[in-house]
Design a protein around this nucleic acid. Structure first.
Length: 287
DNA sequence: CGTTACCTGAAA
DNA sequence: TTTCAGGTAACG
């Protein structure tokens, strides 16, 4: 579900609500045996209880909750995970909606873990597909050590963009989505960035000209900054830490616009598979 | 390098 | 019934 703009939105919203708070009790559903990767759920809950959250950071699509005592609680939401904060006095997620609307994932059916805080608030982890993962580790690099640069960071400059495209014979879209190349771009923002740069997703990464690589660098930053300003995209499941939707889905130019006219040239947007993922592009604007 | 498994539920 | 879904690791 969430890519960099969604995870960063959650990080920003959660920061004032949980930094300085202590986890007084942790619970992991027996129905989610794969959620905790670093140890058994029992051990995880025991070690987490009593720890204060000192800092909330993000690397790629990972949330890093730095705790007192030198441990880091790392969360990856994968496809349908979400973290919902309930302030003091509210202890229940909404019940399933009767009308069958799809943006209802943070309901009680999909509650997989909960974390009670010392101010009476609560952090709820919801995940329909149960693909999300958590770790409690002393060494963060054991989890996030091999990620590529942050696309909005200083280390990601046009030269770095060219360097990471060079020597890769895979389609440029697959390289953009490779978290070891650059961290945080997923299916939506890969398609949108390639449209913005006028590059065909299937083009071999190493075949991009210098100018094209530099345009792509600029496009990635533009798309991510705008998506962040819109608090991410909510196509089906994604909601922020308060259960609210993002707005960028209203601004996408190609993602899930199959058959609709390109806003630039009017040509019908095409959908193909690249690296097993649905890929959307304008056959005229993107060469 | 591309493909498949991991999960659940909605849409085609 | 089959396909598809904001992701990733483990395959061959």
């Amino acid at each position: 579900m969430p890519e960099l703009p969604e995870v960063e939105t959650i990080r920003r919203d959660l920061t004032p609500r949980i930094v300085g708070r202590t986890v007084v009790e942790a619970w992991v559903s027996p129905d989610a045996p794969r959620l905790v990767q670093s140890e058994t759920p029992e051990s995880f809950c025991r070690r987490l209880a009593g720890r204060a959250v000192e800092e909330l950071d993000r690397r790629g699509k990972y949330l890093l909750l730095r705790l007192d005592g030198g441990l880091t609680w790392i969360v990856h939401l994968r496809m349908t995970g979400g973290l919902i904060h309930l302030p003091a006095g509210r202890h229940d997620l909404p019940p399933p909606k009767a009308d069958g609307t799809r943006n209802d994932c943070p309901d009680e059916r999909y509650l997989r873990a909960r974390f009670r805080l010392d101010d009476g608030g609560e952090l709820c982890y919801v995940d329909l597909r149960k693909l999300g993962t958590m770790w409690l580790v002393a060494d963060e690099s054991s989890v996030v050590g091999k990620l590529g640069p942050e696309p909005l960071g200083e280390a990601f400059d046009p030269q770095e963009m060219r360097r990471l495209l060079a020597k890769r014979s895979a389609p440029v879209k697959s390289v953009l989505m490779d978290q070891h190349a650059v961290a945080g771009i997923g299916n939506i923002y890969a398609d949108e960035s390639l449209f913005e740069a006028g590059i065909r997703p299937t083009k071999a990464a190493r075949r991009l000209s210098r100018v094209a690589a530099e345009r792509l660098h600029w496009a990635i930053r533009k798309v991510l900054v705008e998506a962040l300003a819109d608090r991410g995209s909510s196509f089906r499941d994604y909601v922020d830490a308060e259960g609210e939707q993002g707005m960028y889905q209203l601004r996408v130019k190609v993602f899930r616009r199959t058959g609709e006219p390109c806003y630039v040239c009017g040509t019908a947007i095409k959908r193909i598979k690249v690296g097993g993922r649905s890929t959307h592009y304008c056959p005229k604007c993107q060469r």
